[in-house]
Design a protein around this nucleic acid. Structure first.
Lengths: 203, 203
DNA sequence: CACATTCTTTAGTGGTCGCTAAAGAAGCGC
DNA sequence: GCGCTTCTTTAGCGACCACTAAAGAATGTG
């Protein structure tokens, strides 16, 4: 309600500015990206940034949310839409190989690389929790498949989830180091060899 | 020759100061660690640091060299001393699980984490090259084993090396995120399931 | 039109960055 | 003792950090 806006209208596209901020944080990480870097990339003055997005930390949190809804959404989709844990992780890693090397944006995963060497404890703790939460999702999917008989009884769900997450994070690092899509797809394929084979419920 | 030192002697232990600098860079990364952080940790004034170690970048390079000869030496040893590529990588990952979680020093691998979000291009390029060089070592060991008949002919040496490196890097990240030694050992063990089984030369 | 509201622009704040000139302190040979 | 050398201490360089007060500009409402 009351969508009538009074006063001088904003002269820039807020979403596009947020997108540019995302690219900056993605490229250089939270700590190293300066407000001057951001304002230059966003094409606005510092007071406009602070008026529209709060301070640097708040802007970064909004960037993270937007990232999770766009570039990072493939991960949640893979883990939610596939019928089994094995297929979910296989798709997660396969799509990560493509996403991490897409030349349309910085390489690797923002949540993994932008958090590195972050001295702002609140930010680094939040990102760490986000990564560990993703591990929990994978683990619970594996546990469910074990309970359903799709994976062998002796399977260590926590270890297999950690392993899968480690490969995911390693792929992000290698994408940053210049690995190409095909190379990362080979890594993803190799990783799936470590998984126990699935069993169909019937039989 | 001419070991006689003239002038006022240095009042601090250079090696211990280097060790303290190593810990700082290891904890916070190259870019985020300030010279003020370093001088505080090393217990010396800024001019003493510059006289003894050059500038920040030169000090970091010396830290890297020292790290490779001590905390990071296990990796080169594992890759050099084991008879086969498979055993070399298995040992590399197993020992990494212990090393990355040793409470006597910061978690993870300095070469991997200290380079993250490093805007000083010379530094980040050097570290990237070091990581890629390690990949090459693993790949050549695998290729040698394929040639010697220890690994199946169809084995993709580059992919298997990249996979192993990705797990190594992922383990470093997870150690930084709080994973314990046992958990990382489980990851290492899982990773080795992706390797083809070895064949002895005598059929 | 005047006025209130909200944005942008200009120009800074105190603090920290990597780094260093200059002066004082501590060892050597003589 | 004196001078020479090399270190440490003090103090501060210009540049950048995240952030903001104040003034000007652009819209709405009356």
């Amino acid at each position: 309600m009351a969508t009538k806006q009074r006063g001088r209208p904003r002269s820039f596209d807020r979403d596009k500015a947020l997108e540019q901020a995302t690219m900056e944080f993605w490229r250089h990480g939270y700590e190293v990206t300066s407000v001057a870097d951001l304002t230059r990339a966003m094409g606005i003055g510092a007071p406009s940034l602070y008026a529209a997005f709060g301070d640097k930390r708040t802007l970064f949190e909004e960037v993270l949310t937007a990232y999770g809804a766009t570039y990072g959404a493939f991960a949640a989709r893979a883990l939610a839409e596939e019928p089994t844990a094995r297929r979910a992780v296989a798709r997660l890693l396969r799509e990560a190989a493509a996403e991490f090397t897409d030349p349309a944006h910085p390489y690797g995963c923002l949540v993994i690389s932008a958090a590195a060497n972050c001295t702002t404890e609140a930010v680094s703790a939040g990102l760490r929790e986000q990564r560990n939460a993703n591990l929990d999702v994978i683990e619970s999917r594996i546990a469910a498949d074990i309970a359903a008989g799709h994976l062998p009884e002796g399977t260590d769900a926590r270890a297999l989830a950690r392993f899968s997450g480690a490969v995911f994070q390693g792929m992000s690092q290698q994408a940053r180091d210049g690995a190409g899509r095909a190379e990362l797809e080979a890594v993803a394929e190799a990783a799936m060899l470590a998984w126990p084979s699935e069993r169909t419920r019937a039989r």
